[in-house]
Design a protein around this nucleic acid. Structure first.
Length: 740
DNA sequence: CATAACGGGCGC
DNA sequence: ATAGGCGCCCGTTATG
């Protein structure tokens, strides 16, 4: 039955009578009719799903209508509505949840054990110390590893096939061990002989560290390993609860599904906690076996995983825990200055634009929908969009209002994303700022920063994209400096190595800048002429070839390159052709990489250490099939880029491990401070020596070689991030007594 | 009122 | 047959 209102009638009385009739019919309709009526309604896919579930449960006699929903207050029978059905769905979920929990407890495997005495825990630890490898997981009060605490530890002992959950206070159940009893676990967690498997080890290592326990013997992390085995898992797909059903065919409910999203682990009944938590390590171990089996078919990847990605994890924990100090006075002053500037600009923009605004109220400058027509009128020219680069910037000289708008947007972005937001992210416990460095945050192997893979934390932020203005808020601790060391021309050295392009290799062997080197060949002019201007700035020739070389590697179109160079697409295309004539091997390498991807659907990164799977590269587009063609083109660009970016990130990661070792050997406050793709940053005591700098140079240039291509590094000394000086300047100032 | 998609902008 | 690669985060807009 459709509830279409008759809009043609103009008699309210007839309409009311008709509606009353409808109501009577609905009131006396059968349940089956009600369902037909509900399913005839316009429904969202998720509602339809839910309603189907409810109907099935009702038909099976599992649930029925709530008696008080069947009659109205006045005692008349009430129709079964969509809203009531959706309420029943909620009830159904609750019933299912209880049923699942009851079954979980009832079916607790006999080899799962709840440990509730320190005597028993001691025995478990003793047993675990005889195992070659175990799986470990922590349950906590929350996800802030500097503030929250452990409320339970699960252990899987594979040889004995025993799985334990050990609850600690502040778990509310009185059987939970006092938190001091975590000490009993220390010899096991700190043992180097007993190897450990985790799912998301960074979190658990940090939690143990929070309790003063240093994890040793880390062997595998099923979360990071999964990224190597398939970097294309769907978003959110690296959770254990997603991987277990997919790869182990084991059903697995998430904590939120079972207990609701505001539940605390410390408060759930221990019989349920046991089966839930012990299952986690049990599954982690099974996933480990599965992953090991598959990765062992790619021995080079396995070696890379175990010698680079795994040892990197404790390094990241230390790096994150060290954290940052922000100059809050500076941030406040700078923030206020920006706010004032923004206010003034906003006032002026509103005053100038309001006469052209058609809508109600005040114009919202941040709304493209409102701004585009308004600004178009104001300048007397129809703007297709508000794209800063393509539309606005070319007009900034001509129209002061656009110049003003761009400046306003820049300031708003700077203060809202960085200057105002960062000071609020101080950790309440450590009083420092802690970022996240996710070693598998990208499909190519680079680090991502800021977002936790499992669950976000409001205090996390991206350190890798801080603009220069915001970097100045980050300061070295008292008595210390920040030392930045980057890989000079990392990706170009990498591509020289991967392609074997002799022209580039020659340039690096002679210690020359590769772009100037190519420019010098192309223009047949001496190297020094095209390298730098007398005042030290870049020459146009070098700039041009830097853009063209990078465009070539990254698959930029002639239109994209023309855009960057301000030339015509034809001129850009000619430059690309000329370049491929100058660097024939590079050009062949790009082609070979694309052909490899088209044939195999993936590419390798340095040797066969990492894979970038590009299934779209294998697609074939029929003539006119634009969608498919776009996918193929994208995969073609991704191939060479992934090899360069991925191989470079391997160099950074290997070097990072060596850098951490160096810091540990030096002691005396030496620490890894951060990493930004092609750069490592150190925190070091102010009285560092020339020898220390040589050590950094050695670590940077010798830890990971791209074949015969030499590495290079530039080192900078800073008190404030981004405001640095060279090593020579530092020591010169020191001699003059300008530095204490 | 919460969530997702998207444009735009910062980094390498 | 015009989007250079890899990220994260902001504000707006659309949606339920």
């Amino acid at each position: 039955m459709n509830l279409k209102l008759s809009l043609t009638t103009d008699s309210n009385a007839t309409e009311r009578a008709r509606q009353a009739n409808e109501r009577r019919k609905m009131a006396s309709e059968s349940l089956a009719d009600a369902w037909r009526r509900i399913f005839a309604m316009k429904l969202t896919e998720s509602d339809r799903q839910k309603l189907t579930e409810v109907k099935e449960a009702m038909d099976a006699g599992l649930i029925g209508r709530n008696p008080q929903d069947c009659v109205t207050k006045s005692g008349r029978p009430k129709a079964f509505s969509k809203a009531e059905a959706l309420r029943l769905w909620q009830d159904l979920q609750e019933r299912k949840r209880e049923e699942t929990l009851r079954r979980m407890v009832e079916e607790t495997p006999s080899n799962y054990e709840l440990v509730t005495s320190s005597e028993r825990l001691l025995e478990v630890v003793k047993a675990a110390l005889t195992e070659p490898i175990i799986a470990v997981d922590t349950e906590t009060t929350g996800i802030d590893v500097y503030t929250d605490v452990i409320v339970g530890v699960s252990l899987t002992l594979p040889e004995q096939d025993r799985h334990y959950y050990i609850p600690f206070k502040p778990t509310i159940d009185e059987r939970a061990l006092p938190s001091e009893s975590l000490e009993i676990l220390r010899p096991l967690i700190e043992s180097d002989e007993v190897k450990k498997i985790f799912h998301n080890a960074i979190f658990d290592i940090a939690m143990f560290k929070r309790h003063g326990i240093k994890l040793n013997g880390l062997a595998w992390d099923t979360m990071t390993a999964m990224h190597l085995l398939n970097e294309n898992e769907p978003k959110g797909g690296y959770k254990l609860k997603k991987l277990a059903p997919k790869y182990l065919k084991v059903e697995s409910d998430t904590f939120d599904e079972l207990f609701g999203d505001d539940a605390k682990f410390s408060e759930i009944p221990l019989d349920i906690a046991l089966v839930y938590a012990a299952k986690d390590t049990h599954l982690t171990y099974r996933l480990y076996k599965f992953q090991r089996y598959h990765m062992s078919k790619m021995p080079e990847m396995m070696r890379y995983y175990e010698t680079v990605e795994v040892p990197l994890l404790p390094v990241i924990v230390e790096l994150e825990a060290n954290g940052y100090i922000l100059d809050l006075d500076f941030a406040k002053e700078y923030g206020e200055k920006l706010r004032k500037e923004a206010e003034q600009l906003h006032k002026e923009l509103i005053a100038e634009l309001s006469p052209y605004y058609d809508g109600d109220g005040e114009l919202n400058i941040n709304s493209p929908q409102q701004l585009r027509p308004t600004l178009s009128k104001a300048i007397g020219r129809e703007l297709p969009n508000l794209d800063a680069k393509k539309t606005l910037k070319p007009l900034r000289k001509e129209f002061p209002i656009i110049e003003k708008l761009l400046e306003y947007k820049r300031i708003i972005k700077l203060s809202s994303t960085y200057i105002d937001s960062l000071p609020q992210k101080q950790n309440p416990t450590t009083k420092r700022w802690h970022s996240r460095f996710n070693p598998m945050g990208t499909v190519t192997g680079r680090f991502s920063s800021g977002k936790d893979e499992e669950v976000g934390n409001d205090n996390q932020f991206n350190v890798q994209n801080q603009p220069k203005e915001a970097r100045r808020m980050f300061v070295a601790p008292p008595g210390k400096v920040i030392i930045g060391a980057d890989f000079k021309a990392q990706e170009i050295r990498c591509v020289a190595y991967l392609s074997g392009e002799q022209v580039l290799i020659d340039a690096f062997n002679k210690g020359k800048d590769p772009y100037a080197w190519v420019a010098s060949m192309y223009y047949k002019r001496p190297y020094h002429e095209v390298y730098k201007n007398p005042d030290g700035s870049d020459t146009p020739e070098r700039k041009l070839f830097k853009t063209v070389v990078l465009a070539y590697i990254y698959g930029t179109s002639k239109w994209g390159l023309a855009d960057q160079l301000g030339t015509t697409p034809d001129e850009a295309e000619k430059l690309m052709k000329d370049l491929s004539a100058e660097l024939p091997r590079l050009s062949e390498w790009v082609k070979e990489t694309q052909e490899f991807a088209a044939k195999h659907g993936f590419v390798w990164m340095d040797g066969k250490q990492r894979k970038r799977r590009l299934p779209d590269a294998k697609l074939k587009a029929r003539w006119g099939d634009k969608e498919t063609w776009k996918k193929i083109s994208r995969a073609k660009r991704q191939g060479p880029n992934a090899r360069v970016q991925g191989s470079s990130s391997i160099q950074t990661k290997v070097t990072m491990i060596e850098a951490a070792k160096m810091c540990e050997q030096k002691g005396n406050g030496w620490r890894l401070w951060g990493t930004v793709h092609d750069e490592l940053l150190f925190e070091a005591p102010e009285d560092f020596t020339r020898e220390d700098i040589y050590d950094i140079e050695r670590v940077m240039t010798e830890s990971y070689r791209f074949g015969e291509v030499p590495n290079g590094t530039d080192i900078e000394i800073m008190k404030r991030w981004g405001e640095g000086m060279t090593v020579d300047e530092w020591f010169a100032r020191k001699e003059k007594g300008l530095i204490a």
